[in-house]
Design a protein around this nucleic acid. Structure first.
Lengths: 241, 241
DNA sequence: CTCTGTGAAAACATTCACAGCG
DNA sequence: CGCTGTGAATGTTTTCACAGAG
């Protein structure tokens, strides 16, 4: 834990042996989001109780999650927000910029390619691809839509590491294969099917229909959600179809 | 179990006392999606092993999940796909059409309002709202963008039961409050913050940045994902910020 | 005092393994 | 046989509760 904590503070490729509990991984993103928001509000410190409350978690949960990576808190005082953000960003691999491409220039692909929060959070959309010349837009958010034939070369030349799949279900797996072959390290999939990737490639899926259906399920069963936990953001790591 | 099974087969408001395990709720959506796809391929039956394999789950897991609602399988034979789909749709509240509205006519809101799969899956986008007159599009997928002032009346007159929030973070909670006040039963939230709703209202959140971050986390930690489970679709019921 | 980090206990979820149905 | 449904065993995650730091 000591070694790990130091590694986290000073390094990049954290050699996490004790695989992080999957639910914790999801929550780390929420902590980071909430902390950033609090820092913007001018808050300097926060304790596990307050952080937990705004996220619908217990204080113990918050402390357990954060303690996995080392000692970030100050007993009697809480956590220094700026410090914790920095640590979390490093842990999540967010301490540097990631170059991303979008495949599919339909409604969803275009919306994602011009999603401003990606940019402000350090994700650069470096290219967008589509094979269908019939799509009105040939330009999206300042990027020219490239044909799929340029995928491999562009991913290499633009040093793209992540791909976002926004193509119809039928071609999604094929696009995923092309992305992996071209060297991306992770895929965010919006097509409504499970994508298979080889060991070592990251995959997260978001299915809008599944999301809506989780809602109708909650309603049909008369709200199963007991505590304050509700549903988490789709498409997370805990997340795949 | 007998009572429940019959209730499921013949009724609507299933009085599920034994709260469904949250992970199971997520997986039910995946079963339904996969089964529908198999039915379209012309398959008539499937067994737990095969279903599990394509979803990255064990056969025991699949059987446990499905057995919660009654006896759907035929020993020695497997499950009749059409039958199972019908049961699952009922359980998920998908056996009838849901009327939905979208708030926010920016890139994301417009993409969601014209997402064809919603329509084909039985979700009708009945209205789209936005307050910003400066947005180019005054019409989206055949719908006129209405001002927020018409929210309450339209939700009532159009019998809208679900709302999709696609507005900036700053106004998301306020929009959620307006939706609940107007009578919606559930909210699918795309704004990057946690939304508070009163007991009894369904909530599912999808945060694209969180989704991408789960990906960078997988990569930064050198793939924590041990089994074949990978990440699930974001925005699911297990899912909230 | 306040509030963290953490073992130990409790709750929850998954896998095993097998009786029993067709 | 083949394959479901399910108790019992195992594994994982959450909660409790408290010693100890500041």
């Amino acid at each position: 834990m000591e070694r790990l904590a130091r590694a986290v503070r000073t390094m990049q490729r954290v050699p996490v042996r004790k695989s992080i509990p999957r639910p914790t991984a999801r929550r780390l993103s929420l902590y980071l989001r909430e902390l950033t928001s609090r820092l913007e509000q001018g808050e300097l410190t926060v304790n596990s109780k307050a952080l937990g409350r705004t996220l619908g978690l217990t204080d113990a949960q918050v402390r357990k999650d954060l303690a996995i990576f080392g000692q970030f808190g100050h007993p009697g005082r809480g956590y220094t927000i700026a410090q914790l953000i920095e640590s979390l960003r490093r842990i999540m691999g967010r301490d540097r910029n990631w170059r991303v491409c979008v495949i599919g220039a339909g409604n969803i692909g275009r919306a994602l390619a011009s999603y401003e929060r990606f940019t402000s959070e350090g994700f650069t959309i470096a290219a967008i691809f589509d094979n269908d010349g019939s799509l009105g837009t040939r330009e999206v958010g300042g990027l020219t839509v490239l044909p799929m034939s340029k995928l491999a070369k562009t991913i290499a030349s633009e040093r793209i590491r992540l791909g976002i799949i926004a193509v119809p279900r039928e071609s999604a797996q094929q696009v995923a294969d092309a992305l992996v072959a071209a060297g991306v390290e992770g895929i965010l999939n919006f097509a409504p099917r499970r994508i298979e990737v080889r060991e070592g490639i990251g995959i997260v899926s978001v299915d809008f229909t599944v999301a809506l259906e989780q809602l109708t399920f909650q309603i049909a069963t008369g709200e199963i959600v007991e505590d304050g936990k509700h549903a988490l953001p789709h498409g997370d790591a805990s997340t795949q179809s």
